[in-house]
Design a protein around this nucleic acid. Structure first.
Lengths: 202, 202
DNA sequence: AACACTACCAAGCAAGCGCTTGGTATGTAA
DNA sequence: TTACATACCAAGCGCTTGCTTGGTAGTGTT
């Protein structure tokens, strides 16, 4: 009953508290190694009581993924809407994704990346559909940049390279250290459009 | 008893066949979802017989990781030795790592990346020590490039970005498609040292 | 002939797992 | 007052899991 940190975008209803606890445990121990008894213990209820809120353990995993995709898709939309120029939109996207992965939704985002195959085929397809919407926001911005001639590679490939760079950060990035999310975002943007892009890039 | 594809660098002794089978299953279903009965079934023996070759299931996972790190560390050494100039050494390293991840040791490499936390603390430390040797080969080459002024970022950070890019490929790269390992390697090298590096980069 | 070694089988145990069941306490609304 | 919904407890069922045990067959080696 140590109570897990709330994942941003998940309310603190009984259900929401279960989801935040599950997200943290799934990230730390993995879905399979986490028992429903573990989750119940964190929020301070009996293991059987979990099934009043969710039909199955897998439904908990899916709910975590669903909530975090929805929340961060909206964050991407806001990031794009706040900028006009494609390069700055890209920078905003990278910042948003980094914040999602190492910041306020890190537990759930990590679960989304690492526990994908624990879902059955149907739920995987459902989650993939949500993910496609998220990815399309990236692809549109990258296509604009490509049209402007800011990079040569295929935008699809470029997105995958970016996904790799941002997705891996949960394994090493520490916000308390010298490198900030903004600094890292600039570094990653440079990998896409080159270093000599801006007025005095320094 | 469908017999798993042999992982490059693992012999075909009874033990080796178990390791190749385990690597494939661990990649496809994850360590926890794979039972010793699954592994036994692939090589065509009883589940109990596995424990004649390995003390525990975890020892199988560790052995897979150990073998694949050793094999690919040697591959990195060979790649470096075959080139003189730092940029070409980097290209050789990227090619080697991509080959490891999507080519002849893909099952075991994927397991190395994704099933890390299934090891207990002691084994994790042991595996980390092996990984450090592997990583040092990268860092030396990246430090040379950095000294030459081929990129501005911290070599440690740069290595982590590269790790992300290469490590993620197992989720999307398909050798049978238009993009080759060499083509992808060139793309990634460009992300590090910029596109206008060589004589007619195309 | 005697022994040792490797590679395996057949059977099953103890523990842990997801999930079920039948019930209780509290709140809310007609 | 009755009715229903939400949120939970206490107990435990049935199954799967990693692993153990005691034994056997085949191959060398001395």
């Amino acid at each position: 009953m140590t109570q897990a940190r709330a994942v941003h975008g998940i309310d603190d209803s009984p259900r929401g508290r279960l989801l935040s606890a599950a997200a943290q445990l799934f990230r730390d121990k993995g879905y399979e190694r986490t028992t429903v008894r573990d989750i119940a213990a964190v929020v301070g209820i009996q293991s059987g009581s979990i099934f009043h809120h969710f039909k199955t353990k897998e439904e908990i995993l899916f709910a975590v993924m669903e909530e975090v995709i929805h929340f961060n898709t909206e964050r991407l939309r806001a990031a794009i809407a706040a900028e006009d120029r494609p390069v700055e939109r890209l920078r905003a996207l990278v910042r948003a994704e980094l914040t999602a992965i190492v910041g306020d939704t890190s537990e759930a985002m990590t679960v989304l990346v690492t526990e994908w195959r624990c879902l059955n085929a149907d739920k995987q397809r459902e989650a993939l559909a949500l993910r496609d919407i998220y990815e399309q926001l990236w692809l549109d911005v990258l296509a604009d940049l490509h049209k402007e001639g800011r990079f040569r590679a295929d935008p699809f490939i470029m997105r995958r390279l970016i996904t790799g760079m941002t997705g891996w950060t949960h394994n090493w990035f520490d916000q308390s250290r010298s490198l900030s999310v903004e600094g890292l975002a600039d570094l990653i943007v440079d990998r896409v459009v080159g270093e000599e892009s801006e007025e005095g890039a320094a």
